[in-house]
Design a protein around this nucleic acid. Structure first.
Lengths: 253, 253
DNA sequence: AAAGTTACTTGATCCAGAGCAAAGCAATCT
DNA sequence: AGATTGCTTTGCTCTGGATCAAGTAACTTT
C-alpha cells in the first residue's frame, strides 16, 4: 500500500503470528502454519470510537470479532430500552458467539474506548475449521469457555450479595489485566458506574457506595475511573466468605 | 453381552434416525447418511433414577449427554454446599457443553426423574465433525444457542422481579413441552419448589406464594407438581410489562 | 395404621439494596 | 470565566423478597 504519510495504523495490521494476543486468542495452540492460514481470513478494522456500535441486536451475523486494543461492552437492549449489560470485552476476547445459532446478532456491542478489532468472517472460519482439526478444537473450547463463564455469572447474580459481586468483578478485571501484561492492582475502568451496576444487577448508587466502603476499609483506592487494589487477598476472602457459619442455603441437620 | 433376560431396554436402543427427537437434537439438519455415521458413535444408557449423578463437577470430561426421556438438572455445587441450579434439561437437550474447555466437568448433573440419556464420546464427535461439515455447523449452533440461552438467564436474574421470573420459567417449560408434542398448558413439574427457587434466584417461600397468587388470579391451577396454565396470554403480558410507564431504568429525557 | 420424614404453604417480621432527591465535580462549550 | 452537561457521590426513605417460625399435607418406614 501507500508508503507516504500513513502514520501508525499499519502497525495495527500485524499478522496473527506476531500478535501479542495469540496466547489468549483464537490462534492459541495452533501450529505456525495453521496460524498463517487463519491469518489470511482475518480482517483488521480501522479504529472505532467510544459510542460506536460494533453491531446491533438483529443485524445479520457475518463475523466474529476479537478485541485487539480497547474495550467493548455487549448488551441486550431489551424491548423498551432497559438494557442488560452482558459483558465487557478486553483484548483477546471474542464477541458475537451467540449469533451463530440464528444467523442474527442476539445482542448489541458498543465501543467503550477507542478500540481496534479483528473481524473473522464466520463462514470462512467454519471452512477452515473443518480443514484444521486443532482450529475446530479451539473453537469448541472457546464456545465452551463462554458457556462456563456465563454459568459463573448466573451464580453471581443468583447467589451473591452486592459486596461479593463487586469484589468478584474487580478481581476478574484484575486477573484479565495481569494476563495481558498490565498491572493487576492499578488500572482504569473503561465503563461507567451505571454500566457496572447494570452488569452486576445492582443500582448505580449501590456500586458507588460500595466503592466508597471498600476504600474506607483499605481494600482499594478509587479516584473516578482509576482503581488501585490495595489488598487483593482480602478481596478474595470476600468471595469465599460464609461469614462464619451464615446460613446461605438451608442445610439438612 | 448376555442375551438371556434383557427385557425391554433394547427398545430404547433405537438409532438416531428413528428417534423422535432428531429435530430437536444434534442430528438436526443432517442428511440420513450423516445421521447414520453419528449413530455409530452414540451410546444409549441404561435408565437412570432420581437422585443419581450423571456426572459431578471435576469429573474427567468424556461425553456429551443428550436427554432421551426424563429430566436432568445441572448445577454448580459451590465450595460450601450452596448449590446454584443452572438448568433443567428435557428430552433432546444436551448437557456437559461447559466441560469442553478444560476437559473437566464445570458443573454437576443429577437425575430428577427416571431418565435415559445418549452418551456421545466427545473426541469421536470432534473427529466426525471435521469430516462432516454440517455436523460441525450443528455443533457450533448448539454451543451458540447455549450461550444465547445463558445470556437470557442473565437478563432474567439481573432485571426481572420474582413474578416475571416465575412466569418466564413456566412459559419456557410450556414451550419446550409443546415442541416435544406434549400439552403446553398441562404438565407435571419434575423439580421441587426449592429447585425452582434456586434456579430463579428466589427463596422457596417466594415461589410458593407466587404459585398461590397466580392461582388466585386465575392464571393457572396448581396442585403440588401438577400445573395447568389457564391463561398463557396473560402470563406473557407479565413479561412485557412496563407496568404502564414505570421507570425501570433511568432514561435520558 | 402409627410414627417419622420431607416437601410445601402461610403468616409475621426484617433488612439489603432500590429509588428518590440533591449536591459535588470534572469536562466541554460559549 | 462562567455556564451547560453528564457522571458520581451521599443522605434519606421505602419495599420486595428474604428470613424466621409454625403449621399442614403427602410419602416412607415399620
Amino acid at each position: 500500500m501507500s508508503e507516504h504519510k500513513v502514520i501508525s495504523f499499519d502497525n495495527i495490521k500485524v499478522a496473527c503470528r506476531n500478535c501479542s494476543l495469540t496466547s489468549l486468542c483464537l490462534p492459541m495452540g495452533l501450529t505456525p502454519e495453521d496460524v498463517d492460514q487463519l491469518d489470511n481470513i482475518v480482517r483488521r478494522s480501522r479504529p472505532l470510537h467510544r459510542g460506536d456500535h460494533l453491531f446491533r441486536q438483529g443485524d445479520v451475523f457475518q463475523c466474529i470479532y476479537v478485541v485487539k486494543t480497547g474495550t467493548v461492552k455487549s448488551f441486550d437492549p431489551g424491548e423498551d430500552g432497559s438494557e442488560q449489560v452482558l459483558g465487557f470485552h478486553l483484548p483477546g476476547e471474542m464477541i458475537g458467539l451467540d449469533a451463530i445459532e440464528t444467523g442474527y446478532h442476539h445482542c448489541s456491542a458498543k465501543i467503550l474506548e477507542t478500540t481496534a478489532v479483528c473481524e473473522i468472517p464466520f463462514t470462512r472460519l467454519e471452512e477452515l475449521s473443518s480443514i484444521i482439526p486443532s482450529l475446530q478444537h479451539q473453537m469448541f473450547r472457546l464456545l465452551s469457555r463462554e458457556i462456563g463463564h456465563d454459568e459463573d455469572m448466573l451464580t453471581l447474580l443468583g447467589k451473591r450479595n452486592a459486596e461479593e459481586r463487586l469484589a468478584s468483578f474487580l478481581l476478574s478485571l484484575s486477573g484479565r489485566f495481569q494476563r495481558r501484561g498490565f498491572s493487576p492492582s492499578d488500572f482504569y475502568l473503561s465503563m461507567s458506574r451505571h454500566e457496572i451496576g447494570n452488569y452486576l444487577g445492582l443500582a448505580v448508587e449501590t456500586v458507588s457506595r460500595l466503592f466508597t466502603r471498600f476504600q474506607d476499609e483499605g481494600l482499594l483506592k478509587v479516584e473516578r475511573k482509576h482503581i488501585q487494589l490495595m489488598d487483593i487477598e482480602r478481596l478474595k476472602q470476600i468471595l469465599h466468605n460464609d461469614q462464619g457459619g451464615g446460613v446461605r442455603e438451608r442445610q439438612i441437620p
